[in-house]
């Protein structure tokens, strides 16, 4: 007994209204629910989809919503693993060293106020990279809401906050050792954000490829 396109759409809408908002997670749950309902309908030899669906949800809805939260945890893990993998790329130390010497050069050639102003913009560089990628894939490429893609905002937010804290310390940049620490940490944050931008692009592309039929 196979479900119709309308039945599948019904399950999908029901789950979306039950806060399973991400298309990739919903897709897998929809298939699981639909397969189970089809088996139940075949076993009881009925064509009454709505009744079987109702019975299924009475038994399983709480578990399904719990699974949704579990799916989100998996999405976070996927991001951090992809990020760690991105970090071991040979480009990472190159970006760090370039940033480090770049910022140090700025410190040597500009007054402290200009230097502070420049490092205050560092978090925006990484954030803009992510936002640009997000807008391109969501708006221009019409990609649906995907778990991993949207959860990427969290690590960006974390990295965005670190330079803000450092920025406060930059008032104390009076001796060379402190300046080197500030330059080192800001360079590290910039490197982490740029690696995350590369990871984001990779993840966006893989979702686009994997779910092109869904978009």
């Amino acid at each position: 007994m196979k479900l119709t396109k309308e039945d599948i759409q019904f399950i999908d809408t029901y789950l979306e209204n039950s806060d399973v908002v991400f298309a990739d997670i919903r897709m897998e749950i929809v298939d699981h629910v639909a397969s189970d309902i089809e088996d139940r309908m075949s076993a009881s030899n009925t064509t009454d989809f709505y009744n079987v669906f109702k019975d299924y949800m009475v038994q399983n809805k709480a578990q399904l919503l719990k699974d949704n939260r579990q799916f989100l945890k998996s999405a976070d893990m996927k991001i951090w693993k992809a990020f760690l993998k991105g970090l071991v790329s040979p480009l990472t130390p190159l970006i760090f060293l370039t940033s480090f010497f770049g910022f140090y050069f700025l410190y040597l050639n500009f007054n402290i106020e200009t230097f502070r102003l420049i490092i205050s913009y560092v978090p925006l560089i990484g954030l803009s990279g992510f936002l640009l990628t997000y807008v391109v894939y969501h708006k221009a490429k019409n990609l649906k809401r995907f778990s991993v893609v949207e959860r990427l905002a969290m690590p960006f937010w974390v990295f965005y906050q670190i330079p803000n804290i450092i920025f406060n310390f930059s008032y104390q940049a009076k001796n060379l050792a402190t300046v080197l620490w500030i330059v080192g940490i800001v360079s590290l944050v910039l490197t982490l954000m740029l690696v995350l931008v590369c990871v984001s692009i990779k993840l966006f592309k893989s979702y686009e490829k994997q779910y092109k039929t869904l978009a």
Binding site: K2, M27, E38
Partner: peptide, 18 residues
């Protein structure tokens, strides 16, 4: 995520299957 499995999405019976 650990790279032990690969996924493939296909349209089967009016829905997408992973």
């Amino acid at each position: 995520a650990e790279g032990l499995l690969d996924v493939e999405v296909a349209k089967v019976d009016n829905r997408l299957r992973k």
